[in-house]
Simulated assay, not measured.
Amino acid sequence: MLDYGAISLELGTMLTQLIVFIILLLAVRKFAMGPIMAVMEKRRQHIENEIATAERSRQEAEALLAEQRRVLDEARSESKAILDRAAKQASDEAARIIAEAQATAERLKADASADIAREVEKAKAELRDQMAGLSVLLASKIIEKELDEAAQKEAVDKFLAQVGERL
């Protein structure tokens, strides 16, 4: 026994308490700490699995998002190409229609010019026929009337006036 004034320590009791404490510590370690540590280890593994699953899900979501963006970009570029083709086709069709209209207008103009030329030739032929008839008529009248020079000039002037009215 050790005596320190108000505190006295007995070596046997201390040794017994130390042995009981060590036995209790070993028992707690074996029976309580083992299962608690096993539960804690299971919980740690479960959390790690959840974190890994969440990370895989995040990566899959990012991959799906990237795929959706790629598909959306492809759809946009395809729709732009379709619109460009449609605009080009419309432009080509408009140019074709304009060219056809111009060709038709030129053809109609040429046909009208040809019709006018035919009508002019027809009018000239009719005029020649009338002139010939009038010339014959004038000649017959001149022959019938043996006119003097003044009367002949007057007849020619009258004839030219009649021809001028018909032109």
Rank of each mutant, 00 (worst) to 15 (best):
A95D: 09
I143G: 00
Q17D: 11
L9D: 03
R76C: 02
V20A: 04
L127S: 10
T104I: 11
A75F: 08
L167K: 10
A95N: 11
R107E: 14
E149L: 04
A86K: 07
A61N: 13
L160M: 06
I98H: 03
S113G: 11
M40T: 12
G34E: 08
E146M: 03
D84S: 15
I7H: 11
I82F: 12
E10N: 15
L147H: 00
P35K: 00
L25W: 05
K88N: 14
K158F: 02
L2K: 09
A27H: 01
L2F: 11
D111S: 07
V163R: 00
G34V: 14
R85C: 05
A132D: 10
Q68W: 13
R76T: 03
L167H: 03
I116R: 13
R58Q: 06
G12K: 08
A90W: 02
K124T: 01
I116E: 10
E126G: 09
A150C: 01
E41Q: 15
S79I: 05
M40N: 14
R70P: 13
E119T: 01
A54H: 10
I143K: 01
S8R: 15
A81I: 12
A105N: 11
A117H: 13
R118F: 06
D3R: 07
S8F: 04
G164R: 11
K158D: 04
L64N: 14
V71W: 05
L108P: 13
M1W: 05
E119M: 01
E144I: 00
A52G: 04
G12H: 04
A90L: 10
E165C: 02
G5H: 04
V20C: 02
I116Q: 10
I19T: 11
K30R: 09
A117D: 15
A52L: 14
A139G: 08
A95T: 09
Q17V: 09
I98D: 04
K141N: 07
T53V: 05
D148C: 02
K30S: 02
F21E: 04
Q17I: 08
D73N: 07
G164H: 03
L127K: 06
A101T: 11
S135K: 07
E48S: 13
I142F: 00
D157H: 01
L64S: 12
D148W: 01
A150P: 05
G5C: 09
E62F: 07
L11A: 06
S77Q: 12
Q102I: 12
E74W: 07
M33Q: 07
R96T: 06
I82Q: 13
T16P: 08
D111E: 15
S140R: 13
G164Q: 12
E50D: 12
A139R: 03
D129Y: 08
L108Q: 12
I143Y: 01
V28Y: 07
R107I: 11
Q45W: 12
Q152F: 03
V39F: 15
I47E: 14
N49I: 09
G34Y: 08
L26E: 02
